[in-house]
């Protein structure tokens, strides 16, 4: 039987991995270019409604002329009862006392004002030009949108944006 045994046992040749970094860098650059940073993970459930011909907010975002607020049902369904019509607000980049803190509509004015006061010095837009982007869930009762509008009107933050998922073909 020794006839069939191989004489010198060579292992499989090692795979040349020297181009692996190149491949990974390529992937990395692709993702850096194709994506935008997330502002935060909201703790309310938001499925945006669909729409067409919406404005792309990326240029405003780059100039940090935009604040996001989310409105939807809390992920923690026990908390839903604490809020008007069961829908709570999640405000982005707020110094949160507890993780997952949710708000009702009367906290908007102070949030917006605080954010505007702490803007970088090179951002010199007046508060009336800083967009407040409302990311609302499909099922949010519209009265809550009007509550938000009213709160913003009080502090002269007059530019708002209704977020939708753009379905128009590019």
């Amino acid at each position: 039987m020794s006839k069939f045994r191989k004489e010198n046992k060579k292992g499989a040749p090692g795979v040349n991995t020297s181009s692996l970094p190149d491949i990974v860098f390529m992937l990395l650059f692709f993702f850096m270019v194709a994506t935008t940073t997330k502002e935060s993970d909201p703790t309310v459930e938001v499925t945006r409604p669909e729409g067409v011909s919406a404005t792309d907010l990326t240029p405003y975002k780059q100039r940090s002329e935009i604040d996001f607020l989310y409105i939807g049902e809390p992920r923690n369904s026990k908390r839903a009862a604490d809020f008007k019509l069961g829908h709570a607000l999640f405000l982005d980049n707020v110094a949160q006392p507890q993780p997952g803190e949710l708000y009702s509509t009367n906290s908007i004015a102070s949030w917006k004002q605080d954010k505007w006061n702490s803007k970088p010095p090179n951002m010199n837009e007046p508060i009336s030009n800083v967009i407040t982007c409302i990311k609302a869930d499909k099922g949010v009762p519209t009265i809550l949108i009007f509550d938000i509008r009213e709160a913003l009107q009080e502090i002269d933050a007059l530019k708002i944006a209704y977020a939708v998922e753009d379905k128009s073909a590019y």
Partner: peptide, 12 residues
């Protein structure tokens, strides 16, 4: 992408 409709609230 963030896409939205920009609207203006009337001044108080």
């Amino acid at each position: 992408k963030d896409t939205a409709y920009i609207r203006y609230i009337p001044q108080k």
